[in-house]
Amino acid sequence: MSESVQNNAPVSLPEVGFLRLSDVLKIIPVAKTAWYQGVKEGRFPSPVKLTKRASGYRAKDIRALIDRLEAGEGA
């Protein structure tokens, strides 16, 4: 998982594993509602069910999104 985030410290994106939405939104600065709309439209990656009550996002999917954004391809 990602490193503990305290006092608005930067989030470290792991090579493998999962991120919670709160960590993703510190890396991709959009509102939560905009994120969910992007997931619905297919612009952002879908979450993976980790337990009955918890979901996360694959680190590799977030990396791929960052790469697309840096390449100017949009979300």
Rank of each mutant, 00 (worst) to 15 (best):
W35A: 03
I66D: 00
I27E: 00
L21K: 06
R43A: 05
Y57L: 04
L50Y: 08
N8K: 14
V11F: 01
G17S: 00
V16E: 10
E73R: 15
A71I: 11
F18K: 05
V11A: 03
K60G: 09
S2D: 12
A31V: 13
S12M: 05
E3I: 10
A71W: 02
R63L: 10
R58F: 04
L50E: 04
V5E: 03
A31H: 14
F44L: 09
K52T: 15
Y36G: 06
F18P: 05
S22P: 10
Q37D: 05
R53C: 07
G38L: 07
T51H: 05
D67N: 07
A31N: 14
L65M: 15
A71Y: 06
S22Y: 08
S55K: 15
R58Q: 08
G42F: 04
L50S: 08
E70Y: 05
E3W: 09
N8C: 07
Y57F: 14
V39E: 02
N7V: 11
Q37R: 15
R20S: 08
Q6M: 11
L21S: 08
L69N: 09
A71P: 06
E15K: 14
R63V: 13
Y57Q: 02
K49I: 10
G72S: 05
N8M: 05
A75E: 15
R20K: 13
A9P: 02
S2L: 06
L69S: 11
L65P: 03
A54K: 14
K32I: 15
A75M: 10
S12A: 09
R58K: 11
A71L: 09
P14E: 04
W35R: 03
G74H: 04
F18D: 10
P47N: 06
I28L: 11
Q6E: 10
V48G: 01
D67A: 14
P10G: 03
V30P: 01
Y36P: 02
A34S: 15
A9V: 07
S12L: 11
K60C: 08
K40Y: 12
A59W: 00
S4E: 13
E3R: 13
V5M: 07
E41L: 12
S12I: 07
Y36V: 06
P47F: 04
M1V: 11
N8I: 12
G72L: 02
D61T: 01
E70K: 14
S22V: 13
R58T: 01
A31T: 13
V39I: 11
P29C: 01
I62V: 13
P29Y: 03
Y57C: 05
I27P: 00
G56I: 01
E70C: 09
I27L: 03
A71K: 15
A34V: 13
K49Y: 11
E73L: 11
G38A: 14
V16Q: 15
A9C: 06
A31L: 15
S22M: 10
K49L: 13
S12T: 11
G38P: 06
N8V: 06
I62Q: 01
K52Y: 12
G38K: 07
S12Q: 07
A54P: 01
E73P: 04
F44D: 00
K26L: 10
K49V: 12
Q6K: 14
Q37T: 08
E41M: 10
E41T: 06
N7D: 13
S22N: 12
S2I: 11
E41H: 09
V16S: 15
R63I: 10
N8Y: 12
I28G: 08
